[in-house]
Design a protein around this nucleic acid. Sequence first.
DNA 1: AGAATGTTAGAACTAATGTTCTCTACAGGC
DNA 2: GCCTGTAGAGAACATTAGTTCTAACATTCT
Lengths: 218, 218
Amino acid sequence: MQADKKKGTLSSRQQGIVDFISRFWLDKGYPPSIRDIVSGCGLSSTSVADYNLRILERKGYIRRHREVSRGIELPVSSAKTGNKVYVPLIGTIAAGEPIPVPDNDSWSSRVDESIEVTRDIVRSREGVYALKVKGRSMLDALINDGDIVLMQHTSSVENGEMAAVWFKSEKEATLKKFYAEGNRVRLQPANSQMQPIFAKPENIEIQGRVIAVIRQLA
Amino acid sequence: MQADKKKGTLSSRQQGIVDFISRFWLDKGYPPSIRDIVSGCGLSSTSVADYNLRILERKGYIRRHREVSRGIELPVSSAKTGNKVYVPLIGTIAAGEPIPVPDNDSWSSRVDESIEVTRDIVRSREGVYALKVKGRSMLDALINDGDIVLMQHTSSVENGEMAAVWFKSEKEATLKKFYAEGNRVRLQPANSQMQPIFAKPENIEIQGRVIAVIRQLA
DNA sequence: AGAATGTTAGAACTAATGTTCTCTACAGGC
DNA sequence: GCCTGTAGAGAACATTAGTTCTAACATTCT
């Protein structure tokens, strides 16, 4: 059982070490020392651990801080808190109700609660908030009652993006894919089997861009 | 500037230490040593740090692992990895393909990548994995091409739960709401406007329960 | 087979790091 | 004034933990 030489793959021993670091991490709350790895992975010597850690570092699976006790990071993996973001859940979206648009000041005051998401979903965007979907009026956008949509506040969107659109005259908001077409706007349900609707630009207002949908079932 | 004697409050020095640990944590990815705290907080001696750390530990602001280098946890604070879970993304699900069921051994070897989710989604469930949805065959379950479904491996589900169902004779997998009805099984699309389908229990196999759907749009 | 390379063992060495002991300073109560 | 509890300074000490060196063994290539 030898290590794969291919760039991205790891020998079973190296894979075991990465797994162990990860588990140790979650379990103890701090990184393992080399000797922890030795005993945890059944290695015979610290030099074996060091040898394999060097390889893991070279391949980018871990980052080491030399001369620092337990100075092992898992860049991809669990280590950092920095990967988590709190997104304020500021209300619900439902046909017939305006979307509560967050302004920067009263932002926190009107937060019902906040949801945690990992940073890879939000990325580095500003002005991200969450809405809970009420009712089934967005079924054609593949969004059901109770889903949570992560929104980014913006007043303009690119063609093809899913946006929260406010119809001024009807006083209704829905989520649709947005396409500007000359002097009209085409709003396409995400479900391609359904027909698009058209609107005049004067009658609509973009309230935000949908960046993710989270549906929790159980 | 004296320390507050009240149970829950901290002297400014102690508050500074907690803040520093937290910042160090986020910055470096591993806990600070006592000497890091000394220099980071402008203390004059390791004994001062130790003295205050003991107090912080007594008050529950940190947890220490004695005799272990950098063995400091921040239980309350954001620091811990514990709120985040790595879910292995073990493949795709598409009509006509078997769902790759993870067994505990080969688990790690077949992981394409893993996705981060916060623990409140996964809760404390075991055997959670993620699948990327390929194709539009699950549209009636409000799940589109490219969505990620979080699954929990199980062979039986409660009535009404969304489950990954494998049709033995058709060799197809889909996601449907599951209802056992006497000697037949009703499989209801999540979109209630669509008609349910019925199947014989012998012809289906439950491959897992859907616990969340994540759709990333931008 | 022989050389080159990858991997493992063991042990010694050194740096990093937690612990502890003594001394000093200060404030409040008797 | 004297005692006691809190807080801090400094240094010595003991462990923990990272590094490195050498030898051995396996695999692959020539």
